[in-house]
């Protein structure tokens, strides 16, 4: 209960800083909260916001889901493969550490400026954190539990399904959350760098034409999207972790 009150206080603080900034810089640089709200209402009313949100959501969800669908099995396989997985390790980490924006020009050359390129940029951003975390989760398997399972006569598959996989789940979900945020960032990056479209496109449009109230409304929409995505995944995580007494 108290955390909710504290969060509201922090929100009030953020609004106060924003307001002060708006007062200091003037509405042409930083619009105040009511002006931003009004702009947001306008964008929502004429359908601009919803259309852009739809475009972005399509790119985001396609790229992210494809990344998850590829990364989780790959990470599990890498963890289960023992030495072979270990052999791949440095290359995977190297790729994970390379800023994925570095690949944008290559993606454009290969896939053009359309939806495919955007989806692929999101995919690239989200895949590595999910893969690396899933792999780490398999490696973090509790040796004592594995030995216990062995003593009951469980085979490799049973041990993997009953001990290793559930143990890795929190890591996988952490990776999915990380991938979700990076995927969101890459959605905007993709929309800025390729054919201007979606929320990223509106950001570029309003930023370049100094319509700051609209610009801020889009920024805040993105922030909300980020919160919605991570909170959603947190709820999923809780469903899977009923056994954890908290």
């Amino acid at each position: 209960m108290t955390i909710a009150i504290e969060r509201l206080l922090i929100l009030a603080g953020i609004l106060a800083v924003w307001w002060a900034a708006a007062f200091h810089y003037g509405p042409t640089v930083v619009p105040d909260p009511p002006a931003t709200l009004a702009a947001g209402r306008r964008l929502a009313a004429d359908g601009t916001l919803l259309a852009a949100l739809g475009d972005s959501a399509l790119v985001y969800l396609s790229g992210y889901l494809a990344a998850a669908a590829a990364a989780v099995p790959l990470g599990l396989a890498m963890g289960a493969a023992g030495r072979l997985g270990k052999a791949f390790e440095p290359y995977v980490y190297a790729l994970a550490a390379t800023p994925r924006v570095a690949f944008v020009p290559l993606v454009i050359v290969l896939l053009g400026l359309g939806v495919e390129a955007k989806v692929f940029i999101v995919f690239l951003g989200a895949i590595m954190p999910i893969l690396v975390n899933t792999y780490a989760g398999v490696l973090a398997a509790d040796d004592e539990l594995v030995e216990m399972a062995r003593s009951t006569g469980a085979g490799k598959l049973r041990i993997f399904l009953h001990i290793v996989l559930p143990g890795a789940l929190p890591f996988v979900v952490a990776g999915l959350r990380l991938g979700a945020t990076i995927g969101l960032i890459n959605t905007v990056v993709a929309e800025l760098y390729t054919a201007v479209q979606g929320l990223g496109g509106l950001l570029a449009l309003y930023g370049n034409t100094f319509r700051m109230a609209e610009y801020f409304a889009i920024v805040i929409t993105l922030a909300f999207a980020g919160v919605a995505v991570t909170e959603g995944l947190r709820l999923v995580e809780q469903r899977f972790a009923r056994w954890r007494t908290r």
Partner: peptide
């Protein structure tokens, strides 16, 4: 086992 080794999610 000396340490209980119960599966926490079961």
């Amino acid at each position: 086992f000396q340490s209980f080794r119960l599966v926490p999610w079961s």
